[in-house]
Amino acid sequence: MKTAMITALISLLVFASCSTQVEPFKYGTDICYNCKMGIIDPKFGGELVTKKGKNYKFDDVGCMVRYLKSGLLEQKDIAQTAVINFEKQNDFINVNKAIFAASDAIRSPMNFNAAAFSSKDAADKFLADKPGKELNWNELYNKIE
């Protein structure tokens, strides 16, 4: 009886806590899963959420790409891949909807120097007076080694 109850309780809790939402960054507390640096720059970052509801936070989109490429997490287990909007802190954009501006005028925490924008207009506006070019997620993914 007791075992049954405990089992029921555990399964309930496990599946109840199984939300695949991105979790906002706690700046100054959270650390990057790839490079272990404290996350503090609100303009950059990314987050992976697995289908089982685990969150992996990164301080730079480059760290996220590197982690994805490391193969430690399989693509089929990932529910969400999101990046931080350069223009708004803790605003997450799905990578496939994001437009990235790669420019040496940007100094991202891990020196990958790419910023994510929610629209092409925003990226255009940003790059108007700077050298650099626009990339989509796949281009950025392939560019980072």
């Binding site: 309780l9 555990i10 809790l13 496990v14 806590s17 199984c18 697995t50 089982k52 509801g53 685990k54 969150n55 287990d77």
Partner: peptide
């Protein structure tokens, strides 16, 4: 056993 899941809240309750 359930290390693939986020267990923080579960451990708290347990």
């Amino acid at each position: 056993t359930f290390s693939d899941y986020p267990l923080e809240k579960l451990t708290l309750v347990l």
